[in-house]
């Protein structure tokens, strides 16, 4: 029956991801509505539950316009290049010790490598449309994503040093004593900030700065091709919140031995906290300036991430404290 799980599982996961995206968008709009003291979407269905579904159907029936002067082939495949890695990274995420698909020895490295392909899709999409706003947005987006990728990959090295593995299942198993968020606090903060920047979300949403760049890299896209760029963004929230849960919050492990809830529920609870945190930050923080954004990555986050590696190595030598680092 094992092979059945490996065939049905990914299809179900795709459905769950699409369901998550649909309701994450609604939830985000609701949360931001509450923060701004307004009700948020409430017209389509009770409590607005069908708002995103209606939006999807609207996009599905919109005309697909390809600019005359665009590079036709690249313009059409760019949304696919952007979306495919967002789903591919989910292959290595272990949701519980039984619900996992590909148990790669280099799971973490795989996630980092595959997720950076998306930058390429964004760059292709922005360039091929032959639009100035899109090109500027795409270039900014690429510059931002590569700059924040360095602190992102370096902040987890402390975790790898404590867990002695890149396999995500074993990283969770290494946290049954203490979650890595406590010994790796600096790593966690750097990871969280860098991951928000990788997701192109407020306060790092400059590529989409609607007040200056219209909408960023997808200006020329209409209908369902546009929808796939948005889908990718929320699919990455799903993937990144899962990864944060696994690396720093102990994955499916119950805190204080409270095992009265099944592991999957614990995973979902921690995952939901991270997702809510992302929405909360969007409702609270203003957008950064481009120069602040780039300098923050190279002058603050990168040295901090390097310092964290060194600190972890040093604390491994200190008696008593070292027990938390291995």
């Amino acid at each position: 029956m094992d092979w059945l799980f490996y065939i049905i599982g990914p299809i179900l996961l795709l459905g769950i991801m699409l369901g998550f995206v649909t309701y994450a968008i609604l939830f985000e709009r609701k949360v931001i509505g509450w923060i701004q003291n307004r009700p948020g979407p409430n017209q389509v269905g009770p409590w607005g539950v069908f708002q995103t579904v209606a939006d999807i159907f609207k996009l599905l029936t919109k005309e697909d316009i390809v600019p005359e002067r665009a590079d036709q082939t690249l313009f059409k495949i760019a949304p696919i290049i952007t979306f495919v890695p967002a789903f591919l990274v989910l292959a290595v995420i272990p949701f519980t010790d039984r619900i996992r698909f590909a148990d790669l020895a280099v799971g973490l490295l795989y996630y980092m490598a595959i997720s950076s392909i998306t930058t390429m899709g964004i760059l292709v999409g922005s360039w091929s449309g032959n639009n100035k706003y899109a090109l500027l947005g795409g270039m900014r987006s690429a510059a931002q994503m590569i700059s924040y990728e360095i602190p992102l990959v370096m902040s987890v090295i402390g975790v790898v040093m404590s867990a002695h593995t890149l396999n995500l299942t074993k990283i969770v198993a290494a946290q049954n004593e203490v979650w890595f968020i406590f010994p790796q606090l600096i790593g966690f903060v750097v990871f969280l900030i860098a991951s928000i920047a990788e997701l192109n979300r407020t306060p790092f949403d400059l590529p989409e700065a609607e007040s200056e760049l219209v909408a960023g890299y997808h200006v020329e896209y209409t209908g369902f091709r546009f929808a796939f760029f948005m889908l990718t963004e929320y699919a990455y929230i799903f993937a990144m919140a899962s990864l944060t849960t696994i690396l720093f919050l102990g994955g499916w492990q119950a805190p204080f031995g409270w095992t009265f809830l099944p592991p999957l529920i614990w995973f979902i609870l921690k995952f939901a906290v991270i997702v809510f945190l992302l929405f909360w930050l969007r409702g609270t923080l203003p957008r950064l300036r481009t120069d602040q954004l780039m300098e923050f990555a190279w002058k603050v986050l990168l040295p901090l991430a390097l310092f964290n590696i060194f600190l972890t190595a040093v604390l491994k030598e200190v008696p008593w404290i070292q027990t938390f680092y291995r």
């Binding site: 979306f83 495919v84 967002a86 591919l88 989910l90 698909f101 590909a102």
Partner: peptide
């Protein structure tokens, strides 16, 4: 690798 290939196929099939 088979599972990852399946994810790749599904990821291409959806769009």
């Amino acid at each position: 690798l088979l599972v990852i290939t399946l994810f790749l196929v599904l990821g291409l099939a959806l769009p």
